[in-house]
Nucleic acid binder design. Structure first.
Lengths: 156, 156
DNA sequence: ACTATTTCGACAACCACGTTGTCGATTCTA
DNA sequence: TAGAATCGACAACGTGGTTGTCGAAATAGT
């Protein structure tokens, strides 16, 4: 059908939707006492989880090198969201854990994402939104989120 | 409803959808003789268009500084996709134009995007895909695509 | 048990991308 | 005509990611 949207609109809208949600999340996060958290940090918190991990494992989960993961941990540690602790059972490992502040940010993010989703549900209708999510699940891989955006987008 | 997806899944799926489409596009583009084009370059070509523009105007269209736009133009010029021409009517301006190769890449991108959309239509059904696009249009702003992804995502 | 391989974390060098600041040259405007 | 705004280029800087190397510590194998 010639009335169909041009193919390039689809990726544009998908990214715009992603960006709007993330921007809204961080605007609200800033209002709630976390003004210095960046979009990528949320994914890092999610990958660390409540139990904590090591830098090397974090790199694997996020699809980046352990060195890059280490740098990110450095930054978040300086901001007070993460803490490195020595592993009693393995002298090589240093377990990265979320601090009180990190856990607070993670919990607030989850709540705000739910609120943003509810707002979309108001606009689109709950059934349409569920259908949208279901459709997206069918065309996207099960892979984890990869954090190599900068290199992926512009990289060599 | 407690059976609803958690709010954080929506942005993840949106980005994953974007990434899958862009990755597939560039895999096919590489097969068709454009292996060195990066995801961001496609948006640059689109912003330049067939008539050409200046670096400053390009920066405005992409939401980045004119200096950043100038750097990108440098890179694409080295790759043979762009050409700088002096403007006869304004000695300050240098018009950036797509070369033969740039136009070829732009045309192939459009065709590949249409094919990828058709593939999604096979999976989801043409009506569901149109509904998905329509829903996305209702929740995304009319703004143009902004190319400041690296800075936006990891930024200062 | 002792050696060989693997893994972890850190350091360094490097590249890509974006930013602000500055500059001379040119064009527009008051 | 004089002053303000624009264009393009250069420099300095910060961030993010990558590869390569290294010593220390754990694990596997003979």
């Amino acid at each position: 059908m010639s009335s169909d949207a041009p193919g390039f609109e689809l990726p544009l809208r998908l990214f715009l939707g992603f960006r709007v949600l993330i921007d809204d999340l961080h605007a609200e996060l800033a209002r709630q006492g976390h003004p210095d958290v960046r979009p990528m940090h949320g994914f890092v918190f999610q990958a660390i989880g409540a139990e904590g991990t090591t830098a090397a494992e974090l790199g694997r989960r996020l699809g980046i090198s352990k060195q890059a993961a280490g740098k990110t941990v450095d930054a978040l540690e300086r901001l007070g969201y993460l803490r490195r602790e020595a592993d009693p059972g393995d002298a090589r490992r240093k377990v990265v854990r979320l601090t009180e502040r990190g856990l607070d940010c993670l919990a607030r993010s989850a709540r705000i994402f739910d609120e943003l989703r509810a707002r979309w549900a108001e606009v689109l209708g709950a059934d349409r939104l569920r259908a949208l999510e279901a459709d997206l699940r069918r065309v996207t891989p099960a892979e984890a989120f990869r954090l190599d955006i900068p290199g992926w987008f512009g990289g060599p």
